[in-house]
Structure formats: structure tokens, C-alpha cells
């Protein structure tokens, strides 16, 4: 009987000791986990365009963390949906409103026609439009995210969304077509000459 009690006593003591160690470790080595909202927000493109139905990217990130669909971000495109699906470990669903890949655009004000109403300035979520009342406005194109929000308020319709063209400095090689397809621009083809000899 004593042995049984001894065994139980030892086990209890061990449990208490390890419990104490674990408890201490939990407090001492507590890792401040990156909250999920921040991680989602980091993936979103930060255009602050409101096309998802939320006033900005962070509110949408919060909504996603509360279970909203991950496919509501047209500027991010399918890539963002994929990244969100990877992060949240859910299935990647097709982008809401078509498979169109986003085209990078910037707003351009036709400055001759601007009447200086400042409406676009108020609409711009990232303060990328310069101007004052009754003065011509202009877009800081480097800062413009192409969110579209300034187009609608313009009373004289003088804002165009212009595609950012590819220059020789921003151009990149396209992905090869994959197995079974003949690729142009292949290099290192002297091998064939060697084979022919």
C-alpha cells in the first residue's frame, strides 16, 4: 500500500515540478506572435482603393481575419488571393469579378481642363494629388497606386487612368511556356551544331 502511495506521491510531485517549469517557460519565453491581421495587411497591395467594399486595406484585412472571402481585392489579382490562401491555409478561390490580371495604372490629370475644384485631392487616399482651390492639380505619379478613386468625383472628367507602360528598364523576360512547347529566345544552342558534326 505504501509503495502505491509513494508512487502516486512521486508522480504528483513530478507533475507539479514540470507544471511549474512549463508555466514559467510559457511566461519567460513568450513569443509575441505576429497578429494575423498584420500579416494579411502586409499581403494586400495597399492601394486603399475600397474596391473590396472596405474603407482601406487594413479594414479588409480585419474583415478577412473575421472570415470574409479572400477574393475581393482586384488590384492584388490572383497572386494576392493565392498568397492569402497560403497564409490562412484555405482554398484559393477565383478572383471576384473575373480572372483579369490587374494592370498597373496611374491617374493623369489633363491639366488644361482642370478647374481646380480640389475634389480629387479629397478623394485621394494617399495624398498623391497636389493642388489648391482654383489652382491646377497634378498627380504625383510615383506615389499614385492607381486606385481610381479620383476619377469619379472630377466634375469636368479630366482625369485619365493611364497604363504604366513597360520600358526597357522595367521589362523582364517572360516565363517559358513549359514542357512541350518550343521556346523562342533559347540560348546555348551550339550544342546542336556539335551534334551535327
Amino acid at each position: 500500500m505504501f509503495t502505491v502511495l509513494l508512487a502516486i506521491g512521486i508522480l504528483v510531485a513530478l507533475a507539479l515540478v514540470f507544471g511549474a517549469i512549463l508555466g514559467y517557460a510559457n511566461v519567460r519565453f513568450h513569443v509575441e506572435g505576429d497578429p494575423i491581421v498584420d500579416q494579411i495587411d502586409a499581403i494586400l497591395p495597399q492601394t486603399q482603393c475600397g474596391q473590396c467594399g472596405h474603407p482601406g486595406c487594413r479594414p479588409y484585412a480585419e474583415a478577412i481575419s473575421n472570415g470574409e472571402a479572400i477574393n475581393r481585392c482586384p488590384p492584388g489579382g490572383q497572386a494576392t488571393v493565392q498568397a492569402l490562401a497560403d497564409l490562412l491555409d484555405v482554398e484559393a478561390i477565383p478572383l471576384d469579378g473575373g480572372e483579369e490580371e490587374p494592370v498597373q495604372k496611374v491617374a493623369v490629370i489633363r491639366e488644361d481642363e482642370c478647374i481646380g475644384c480640389t475634389k480629387c485631392i479629397q478623394a485621394c487616399p494617399i495624398d498623391a494629388i497636389l493642388g489648391a482651390a482654383k489652382q491646377m492639380h497634378t498627380v504625383i505619379s510615383d506615389e499614385c497606386t492607381g486606385c481610381d478613386l479620383c476619377v469619379e468625383p472630377c466634375p469636368v472628367d479630366c482625369i485619365d487612368m493611364v497604363e504604366v507602360g513597360v520600358t526597357s528598364r522595367t521589362w523582364s523576360w517572360e516565363k517559358p511556356q513549359g514542357v512541350g512547347v518550343q521556346s523562342a529566345h533559347i540560348i546555348a544552342t551550339d550544342r546542336q551544331t556539335e551534334a551535327a558534326q
Binding site: Q177, V181, Q182, S183, T189, Q192
Partner: peptide, 8 residues
Amino acid sequence: LPAPYPEQ
């Protein structure tokens, strides 16, 4: 420089 063979 013959046309490259298709990718396999």
C-alpha cells in the same frame, strides 16, 4: 543556330 527543340 537552329531553332531550339521543344522543352521536355
